[in-house]
Amino acid sequence: MMKPGKRGRAPGAALVLPAITILAYLVIIGPIAIVVIAAFSPTEFFVFPPPGLSLRWFVEFFRLDNMRSAFALSLELALSAASLATILASMAALALVRRRGALAGVLQGLFLAPLVFPTIILGLALLLFYKTVGVGILPGLVLAHVLVGTPYCFRSVLTSLQSFDFTLEEAGQSLGAGPFRTFFLVTLPVIWPGVVSGWFFAFIVSFGELNTALFLTGPGETTLPIEIFSYLQFQGSQLVIAAASALQVGLILVLILAIERLVGLARLARS
């Protein structure tokens, strides 16, 4: 790429562009930082800068039954949806990676569609469908989260498979390994980083999913993001919400580190 080095730059750009960039990062990350800071407030209402630090809102969070159960449900949902999505997406990616032609393109588009498809419409469609067919709240939520998470896994596994040397599978077969043993002893270990990061992405997406869950949760069976949303909407801004949000942010940070460690370690083993 043509490096926008200082020499080639239009006059003035040298100052304006970095300023805009820093501002952009501030407004992107600032709101999240504010929420995390607010979560540690010792006061009843949020004042900035906070007069001290306290964990009282986290304690309060786990004391509230509905918050605690929403947190648990979100975790269970994310675990099961991410696992199912990873399995489905890996199957799809394996089936499609070496297919060319229009049909393969359409199918790839289908598995990637929830990435850009307005998920609120998907939520509405699923709600109506569930009402007609009779699907329970929990399986309904799992399915919705699987749909939303699959594209991330699909993309991640497909990328791994695209750089996978398929003669390795032939080598496995030439040494007497049948299709299943070849997959589990050769293919899977090699594409493992893609599968793992796909799972983590699906987990994170499911854990923060709003638009489909909006329609599909029910009384007593609510996910954490929806619980936060209804608190904000109907009970106003309370600091226990900040604690809930901070927990979410913290979990995501932990997961990012885990991805880095796990996939990094897997890469290390391969080199």
Partner: peptide, 11 residues
């Protein structure tokens, strides 16, 4: 990766 509800809450 952070849920939009959290980011909106920040604002």
């Amino acid at each position: 990766m952070v849920s939009n509800v959290v980011r909106a809450y920040g604002w």
